[in-house]
Design a protein around this nucleic acid. Sequence first.
DNA 1: AATATAAGCGTACATACGTACGTATGACAA
DNA 2: TTGTCATACGTACGTATGTACGCTTATATT
Lengths: 153, 153
Amino acid sequence: MYAYIQERTNVHMQFNLRSVLSWRFSVARPALSKSEMEVARLLWEIGPATVREIHERLSADRDATFATVQTYLRRIEAKGYATSTIQGRVRTYSASAKPRTVIRDTVCDLVDRLFGGESLPLVRHLLEQKNIDSEGLQEIRRLIEKMDESRSK
Amino acid sequence: MYAYIQERTNVHMQFNLRSVLSWRFSVARPALSKSEMEVARLLWEIGPATVREIHERLSADRDATFATVQTYLRRIEAKGYATSTIQGRVRTYSASAKPRTVIRDTVCDLVDRLFGGESLPLVRHLLEQKNIDSEGLQEIRRLIEKMDESRSK
DNA sequence: AATATAAGCGTACATACGTACGTATGACAA
DNA sequence: TTGTCATACGTACGTATGTACGCTTATATT
């Protein structure tokens, strides 16, 4: 039971019909790959953007050709995480999924697989890596205070 | 410039020569896939284990055949995260990479891609998901205390 | 108007991953 | 000793992913 999707993007992808349907009702989408996630983050960060803009931002860290970034964006759209419109010769992509959602799903998955569902060990790890500055620690402290309060009530 | 690896496992994999070399010197290995990570976690959890044992554990959550788990383990070994010995008819795998290392690499990668290198937002996210109990919060608080101390010195 | 630039779009290709079948063979039961 | 069962191991196959070429065409430049 498969459906074949071939929209404007002409990215050939097969999805299980179920996942297509649930995606149409924005319940779940095929997960983003690592590279796609990076691009998606930039999309959230700088808002609607052209391929060029994303490519420039991305080139700061990684090294991928324009065409590669183009493919990432096409696939991101095909998976339902973004939409695009074309103005003149230039296509502009904008995120259609909320970062919150993607982060939740991704992190949940990681926690499940790497920590058996326990998130505390991950927090522990992050704190011990000590790449969080004093202000960060301060904020975490405040967060915990607040949670404690709302919990004891 | 590629090297072709084909050990006992006969899993056909191509690695960039650089990564093969650095792996031989235990500096870096090809990353584990999501499923492989799940299996690796079980390996750490229950120590050296047979395919059957891992399969049983895994079947509790997921649903994969014996042969599938076998393939995961073969690939995990091929990537250098485990070794195996055979006793009679039964092959036993044991992890050869430390969880600490794998966790560090995996989490770093995630933080880079999804949060642009900032780990604070991830911590924030994890705390807000409030699936950490009071004891957990307590421990985090203690951790922060300790870090604050060692930092102010 | 002719030409150069840059972007879209289709397409490609090697490798990775999820998943599992089938066959051979060793271990154990009857 | 012969049959049953479990396991290893080779292999396979569809899809995903990383990466990018090349053709076409709209836009900008001379």
